[in-house]
């Protein structure tokens, strides 16, 4: 995998993490800091004994897949999951009726 492809993965991971973060910011995200460290570490292989860069990229892509799939799964679930029975008001509104005590 070439350099730009691994940068692309990094950008996607950052995007997913930001989306799933409750504050919407990654200012103090530990996991992101770790990932950046790893990217720096595996950028050059001259001074370090490290596994094939390919393996690191594979793990990064798997993590991206994990974040993305979990988010999409939750989105589909939220969209289609039953919310129980509708209330009388809701049912009435569904068919365009009003309840007796509603203003006309």
């Amino acid at each position: 995998m070439n350099f730009s492809a691994s940068l692309k993965t990094l950008r996607h991971i950052t995007h997913e993490l930001r989306q799933s973060s409750p504050q919407g910011s990654l200012k103090d995200s530990l996991v992101l800091r770790y990932i950046f460290d790893q990217y720096h570490k595996f950028k050059t292989t001259e001074q370090q004994v490290c596994k094939a860069q390919e393996e690191v990229n594979f793990i990064a892509n798997s993590y991206l897949c994990y974040l993305r799939s979990t988010r999409k799964r939750q989105e589909i679930h939220d969209q289609y999951h039953g919310r129980g029975e509708r209330s009388v008001e809701e049912t009435a509104r569904l068919v365009g009726f009003k309840l007796p005590h509603d203003p006309k």
Binding site: I59, S62, Y63, C65, Y66, S69, T70, K72, R73, I76, H77, Q79, Y80
Partner: peptide, 20 residues
Amino acid sequence: EWAHDLNQQDLQARLSATVL
């Protein structure tokens, strides 16, 4: 969507968790 896509995403999430 609520069957096939859900299943697909779920499998992917499970499997990537396993790999990691």
